[in-house]
Amino acid sequence: MDFEPPFQGACKDLLLNSPIINKFPEVEECELPVIDLSHLDYEDINRDKCTNKIAEAASQWGFFVVVNHGISPEVLNSIRDEQQKLFHQPFDKKIEQTYLNLSPLSYRWGNPKATCVQQFSWSEAFHISMADIPNMNEQHQRLRSTIESYAKKVSHLAESLAEILAQRLGVESSYIRDHCPSGTSFLRLNRYAPAPCPFSSEVFGLLAHTDTAFLTIVQQDQVGGLQLFQKGRWIGVKPNPEALVVNIGDLFEAMSNGVYKSIRHRVITNQKVERFSVAYFYCPSLDTVIRSRSTTEPAVFKSFTLLEYKQQTERDVRELGEKVGLSRFLL
């Protein structure tokens, strides 16, 4: 189909430098902690229990699921429909920088830095800065308005969750709002194509990684594939299109001195059907200094700015083909 990126050709070239990939072993599916956010609307013991659950999940799992999150099914369905229409546009259109009038390299597929098949992602994405949304071409008005509506809702949710997690660290409530203005976060529309790969029964839709953010909020469809590394093994996350998945990012792990966990996760492709997801990365400005807020334990990580962290990540991806992450900043 003319909307598919040339995954097969790219993989054939990489295969020259790679052994054949074996089928990934079966993984057990798990139920992540489910948190009902409607309890946050009340100033009583139920709110306290809810915030405790959020902090516990961030510490023990690094992932949790939220329901009654305030984003209507209509908004969720609309962005799912619009992203499907977008990804089913011809590939030649999608790679044009002027197609949506976004920042260069906003459309991505595969992994141009991959040196072997194990570093290749069988997926495509539009990585959109919140600051770029108002500049989208007027001919995509419905897509733009849908993204704006979703972004407004999910950014409010992210801010609320981040403030709760920050307050548990003793961080003043204004810190999150002051350092995370509306234009510094990102929305990533993902499509994981079916992978009829001739030399592998399964391939990665997205390589194992942690997120460079305070936290990420993910809307999934009904097709599974998200896996996280927990207690020395990979486990699958049961999909729930009505709920949202929240995971802790590197910045909160560093700020919490390792109390909150930024967990490695990946996506496995489905052999027969495509999968869609929308990820919102809640990020501060580039000059924000990330440092440990622990008052009882020695700092685990060096202080760094988000810019320094991104520059180190870019060097690692360029030289190694993958992100290294927080271990680069250990004291």
Rank of each mutant, 00 (worst) to 15 (best):
A114Y: 08
E274H: 01
L37T: 08
V34P: 04
E96G: 07
P196V: 01
L15M: 07
L161E: 02
D41M: 08
V300T: 15
K23T: 09
K23S: 08
Y107E: 01
Q83H: 06
V317T: 12
R188C: 09
R293P: 05
E124C: 05
I79A: 02
Q118P: 04
P73D: 10
G110A: 07
L206S: 10
A114N: 08
T184A: 10
A162F: 01
L15Y: 04
L226A: 11
K310T: 11
V259F: 14
I54N: 13
F214S: 03
R168N: 14
D211W: 03
E74A: 15
K93V: 00
E202Q: 08
Y42P: 00
N111H: 09
Q60I: 09
L37I: 09
L143G: 00
T210N: 07
K261Q: 14
S72P: 11
L331C: 11
E253R: 06
K153Q: 10
V273G: 04
V324I: 13
F3R: 01
R144K: 15
D211E: 12
I176S: 00
R47K: 15
S200F: 00
P298V: 10
K93G: 06
W61M: 05
P298Q: 01
Q167K: 15
V223I: 14
Y107R: 01
C30M: 14
